[in-house]
Simulated assay, not measured.
Amino acid sequence: MKNIGVILAGGSGRRLGSELPKQFIVIAGKTVLAHTLHTFEKHERIDEIILVVHKDYIKETEEIVRLEGFQKVKHIVPGGKERYHSTLAALNVYKDEPCHLIIHDAVRLLVTSRIIDHVIEALESHAACTAAIPSTDTILQSDTSRQFVDNIPDRSTLFQVQTPQGFHSDILTEAYNKALSDPEFFSTDDCGVVKRYLPETPIKITQGLPFNIKLTYKEDLSIIERLLLSELK
Rank of each mutant, 00 (worst) to 15 (best):
G29Q: 10
A179L: 07
T216C: 03
L227W: 10
S156E: 15
L37P: 14
I58R: 04
T87K: 00
D190Q: 07
T144M: 03
L209Y: 12
T163I: 05
L20N: 08
E82W: 15
D96V: 08
S86G: 11
A131Y: 04
I27G: 05
M1G: 07
H54W: 08
S18M: 05
V149T: 15
L110Q: 11
H85L: 01
I115E: 14
T157E: 07
V26W: 09
R196G: 03
Q165T: 14
V65K: 08
T157G: 01
L67C: 08
K72T: 13
D154N: 14
H35E: 15
D182M: 06
E97Y: 12
I139R: 10
K42M: 11
I203W: 02
D154G: 04
N3R: 02
E44W: 11
I205L: 15
Y84P: 09
E41L: 03
E63A: 12
I76K: 13
H54A: 14
L140E: 11
Y217Q: 10
Q147A: 08
I50C: 01
L229G: 04
T130V: 08
V52Y: 04
D182A: 09
E41C: 02
D154Q: 04
F148D: 14
T136W: 00
I4V: 14
D220C: 03
K55A: 10
S12N: 13
S125N: 15
S142N: 12
T157V: 02
L232F: 15
P153H: 03
H38C: 01
T61L: 01
V161H: 08
K204Y: 13
V6E: 03
K59W: 10
K218Q: 15
G166K: 02
H38K: 13
E231P: 00
S169C: 07
V32K: 02
Q160P: 03
T136Y: 12
Q23G: 08
L33H: 02
D105T: 13
D56Y: 13
E62I: 01
E62F: 06
I49F: 06
T39F: 03
I205F: 15
K218S: 08
L123Q: 12
N3W: 10
